[in-house]
């Protein structure tokens, strides 16, 4: 029974880690987590620079670059107490740690306590 529970824990933890890795990859493998903002949406919709589209303003220099306004799941946590602190490392890290603890030999903790009692 214990073995089944341990196996379930390991499988679940690996699934969590794998999904976190997939999310990080799917959102561009960025270093930090970020969320779309309303300000950036407004900047994209203003239409002011469109008035110069036929004037040759951007012929040599190209269109002005814009910041991607989308969600990215980062590799590392931002050092802040907000949603940007959630990252691949903070999700997959603890999950892998739990999986690692779950796959340790069953008798390990018992042997350790026996050894402690013997030495006393």
């Amino acid at each position: 029974m214990v073995r089944i529970i341990r196996s379930v824990i390991v499988v679940c933890c690996l699934f969590i880690s794998l999904q976190a890795f997939m999310l990080w990859t799917a959102t561009g493998r960025k270093a930090l987590t970020r969320f779309p903002t309303e300000e950036l949406t407004q900047q994209a919709d203003s239409g002011l620079s469109d008035l110069f589209s036929d004037t040759g303003l951007n012929d040599d220099l190209g269109e002005v670059q814009k910041l991607d306004n989308r969600f990215t799941f980062g590799l590392l946590p931002s050092p802040a107490a907000n949603a940007e602190a959630v990252s691949l490392m903070t999700v997959a890290g603890p999950a892998l740690l739990v999986a690692l603890l779950a796959i340790q030999p069953i008798g390990w903790s018992k042997r350790k306590s026996h050894h402690k009692n013997d030495s006393e």
Binding site: L32, R34, T37, E39, L67, T72, S78, P79, A80, E84
Partner: peptide, 10 residues
């Protein structure tokens, strides 16, 4: 200045 990450902006 907005870098897309509030913590980095700060």
């Amino acid at each position: 200045i907005d870098t897309g990450n509030k913590t980095r902006n700060k």
